[in-house]
Amino acid sequence: MSHQLFLLLVNATLDTLYMVAVAGAIGTALGLPLGVWLATSGRGELLAAPLFNRIGGVLVNATRSTPFIILVVAIIPFTRLVAGTSIGTSAAIVPLTVAAVPFIARIVETAIREVDRGLVEAAEAMGATPYQIIAKVLVPEALPGILLGLTLAIVSLIGYSAMVGAVGGGGLGDLGIRYGYQRFMPEVMAIVVLLLIVLVQGIQSLGEQLARRVNKRLRTA
């Protein structure tokens, strides 16, 4: 492998990690509270606001159902507004984040809905406020599920990040398309695929390990 190609691969890997890390972090920061709110604002629930809950649900679904490559192009004006430009690695973080937030929100919502209603009732009987129930009961009890869901979201982000080459986002996927496919360099394609596999595998096992550590349900005495 030439020195030049090696540098390309290193840079592309760093670009991918950078995009996924920032989009994942912002996506979690926004998606976690949104997911908690979606799970607790339905009719008759802790923070009941059924109308807003439904509007929120529709918005989340709308974003989730737009194919990512179309989302990237469709929100270019928004990207320009936020990042100052619509081209480049940093600009690519904007559509990645926009896709990550509703995805993570749905995952968090599902994990929280899995928490036994009896625990909420017990906390209410103790005189807990809705916010205490969320912070001390729902989120800690849902944490193993949330961590597994976040792992899934980050793995998906790696997949999405391959598409942001369309707006000059760079990263491994972009390298694979431009060198591996368009320049007929199958060895580049092979290395890119291999790197992606290693990356996904690493993140998956890290996530599973974390989830297992916080899960006290399956411990044996």
């Binding site: 036994d116 009896g118 625990l119 009732e121 017990a122 009987a125 009961v137 800690p140 009890e141 944490l143 916080v214 006290k216 349900r217």
Partner: peptide
């Protein structure tokens, strides 16, 4: 008013 439950309702994470 304390309350106990049929299915205990303990927090598994604590």
């Amino acid at each position: 008013i304390g309350m106990i439950f049929q299915h205990f309702n303990l927090l598994s994470s604590r």
